Each structure stands twice: as structure tokens, then as C-alpha cells.
Amino acid sequence: MQVPLIARAKGERGLISQLLGPKYGAFMIMGSLGDSKIEPGLPPLSSIRQVYNKLENVNSDTKIFGVVSNPVGHSKGPLLHNPAFRQTGYNGIYVPLLVDDIKDFFRVYSCSDFAGFSVGIPHKETALSCCDEVHPLAQYIGAVNTIVRRPADGKLVGYNTDYKSFDIETKQESHVSPIAGKLFVLVGAGRAIAFGARSRGARVVIFNRNFERAKTLATAVSGEALPYESLNGFRPETGMILTNASVVGMEPNVDQTPVSKAALKSYELVFDAVYTPRNTRLLQEAAEIGAVVGSGVEMFIRQAIGQFKLFTGGLAPEDFMRKIVLEQF
């Protein structure tokens, strides 16, 4: 005898079985009345209402988008893209997708319902080989942070919106980048940032726990790779620029920092691509010693706007998206 059944997978990986249930015929979703730690994968109803407050409007025609990352719990993408979908009237939902093996993921999630993806750590380089086509800029950088399933033929097309989102603002009326000729120290293998710094005339030095990855990236941008252990002792000159593109300092490990406070005295500008929390320990200590600091929030906004345009094939509500981020993050 066949009996109607609603199945729910538990754990962080099972969260999408809750959020996408209405699309596939479930007449209800479940949530906890308190702390989600009581049962992982079962978030508080208050959280579901805040992020997915029109979940009752999800139907069989809803297109699915999500962030493919590991870890993924820190991502603020759902807080931004879901309100933007509602603002524009686009029938889409954006969900967190905890993925260990991105190639296996795309083999399983191959239907047209899954229309687009943000690609996060550590999958941006591997994602290149998962795409049927790759935009020339993403190919040049060697990393993809956005994948769109083309409606006409179902092919996966890879893009990189990180590259243009990385910029250091200056109030000087000059076409010369403020980082031109500067020694630019990059922590982590942030390919888009490394290429962006190089294109603006900086001298790039890369520190990464995986030294082979650091060397490969350094070669690609005509830079230099040095052992991660020597980072705090690297002080060849003053007035350097530091950018953290690693996960050090990201929630929940907010007490961590990639560079000691004493070593920060050699830098005049410190940028942290981490945006959760908005004001990391690295930025706090850099400000205390008098360096100019920059948060990853602006970079997140810019790359997300670029992604939203690719997801919907149209314009993004830029002012609205910026307001959402600045109010909620």
C-alpha cells in the first residue's frame, strides 16, 4: 500500500530537505522553537521566517540557487539573495549547500531546477572542471565563483565576479591605483584578489598554509610565495598592504588572526575578505596601530550584485541589496 510521505534529512546537509520541501509537494516545514543546536539541520522557526519569509510561495516553478561551500554556515548569501528575489518578483530561492566534493555534487544535482550557484571555499578552482563553458576572465584567473545553468541547453557556465569586486577606494583624483608599486601581502590563495592586485601594479607576495598552492598562484601573477610560518617575521619594508583571503578569523573562530599585532606595524593598509564578523580581530588590531582598514563586506556586496545579475539574466536592485547588507550584517 502506498502512503503519502514527507521525508526530512537531518543534520546541516539535510537543511535543504526542509527549505525545498514545498517545491516538491510537502505541505509543511518543521523548525525548532529555540536553539538549532538542539537538533542540527532544524533551524528555529524565527530564523526561517527571517530569511525565507515567503517560503509559502515556493512552488514547482521556483528556481533553486545556492552557495556551494564547506563550511557554509557562515554564508550571508541567503540573507541577501532571497530578499532580492522578492524585491524583483523573481520566483527563486537561495539556500546553503554544504558540499564536500563539488564534482559529485554536480553529478547528483543535475536537473534544471537547480539554476545557479555561488561557489565558495574550497571549491573555486575545482569548479572550473565542472563547467561546460567558462567565461574568459574566470579562465584567466583560474577560479570560478558563480555557475549558471543555461536554460536553453542545461549547460553549466562558469564566471568570476570576485575579480571586479576587489578594489581599494581612494579619494585622490587620480587614475593611478593607490596600490601601484606597493608590496601587496596576500594571506590565503585568493586568486581573484591576487590577479586584481597584480593588474593594479602591485608587487604580490603570497603566504598560504599549502605552500604548493601559494607557489602556483605566485607564478601565475609573477609574484613570490613564502612559507606561511614566516608571515609574522616578514617586514622587508614599511607601508605594505595586507589582505587576508583565508578563513582565519571567520565565525565561529573570531578570536583568531593571521598576523600578530606587532607585525601589523609594517602595514599602512589592511583589508580582510572575511565578512563574518564584519569587524574581525585583524581589522580591530590594525586600526589600533593606526593602519587604514577595509572590510570584506563591500567586496561581498559587489560580487553578490554581479551574481544576482547572472542568476536572473537581468538587473539587480543594487541600492536595495546594499541596504540589506549594511542593516543586517
Rank of each mutant, 00 (worst) to 15 (best):
K164N: 11
S110W: 00
H81P: 03
K155Y: 12
P178N: 09
T170V: 01
Y163R: 11
N70H: 09
V119M: 01
D113K: 13
R150K: 15
Q50V: 02
G92I: 05
K63N: 07
C130W: 11
F114M: 09
I64W: 03
F105M: 00
N160R: 10
C111H: 03
H135S: 01
N70E: 08
L128A: 06
Y94G: 01
H175R: 00
N53L: 04
D167V: 15
F85N: 07
R149M: 00
K103N: 04
I179E: 08
F117N: 11
N70F: 13
H123F: 04
S112N: 11
Y109H: 15
P151W: 12
Y94L: 01
L97M: 14
G142W: 09
K164W: 00
L156N: 11
I121C: 14
G181S: 14
H123M: 08
N70K: 07
N91P: 07
N145Y: 02
T161R: 02
V185Y: 09
K103F: 05
K63H: 05
D104S: 12
F85M: 12
P71K: 03
K103D: 15
V134Q: 11
S165V: 05
E133S: 05
T62V: 08
Q50E: 13
H135P: 01
Y163S: 09
G120R: 00
D104N: 09
C130S: 14
P151V: 14
R150Y: 11
S129Y: 10
F166N: 10
G188L: 08
T88H: 01
Y163G: 01
S129N: 13
V51L: 05
D162M: 03
A84R: 02
F105G: 02
H123K: 10
G116W: 15
N59D: 04
Y159N: 15
F105E: 02
E125P: 05
F114L: 01
T146E: 01
P78C: 13
Q87Y: 07
G92F: 05
L98D: 00
K76C: 01
P83C: 06
T88P: 00
Y52S: 12
I93L: 08
Q172Y: 07
D113H: 09
I179T: 14
E169I: 15
G154N: 12
V99Q: 06
V72F: 04
C130I: 05
V119W: 03
S69C: 03
V119S: 06
K164C: 11
G142H: 10
E56K: 03
G142K: 13
L97R: 04
L128C: 11
G154S: 12
F65I: 08
I179L: 09
D132H: 13
K76Y: 02
A84D: 05
D100K: 08
T126C: 02
V95E: 10
C131D: 07
G73R: 07
N59R: 06
E173P: 06
G77F: 03
G89T: 06
Y109S: 05
K155N: 13
D104L: 04
Y90L: 10
G158H: 07
G158L: 05
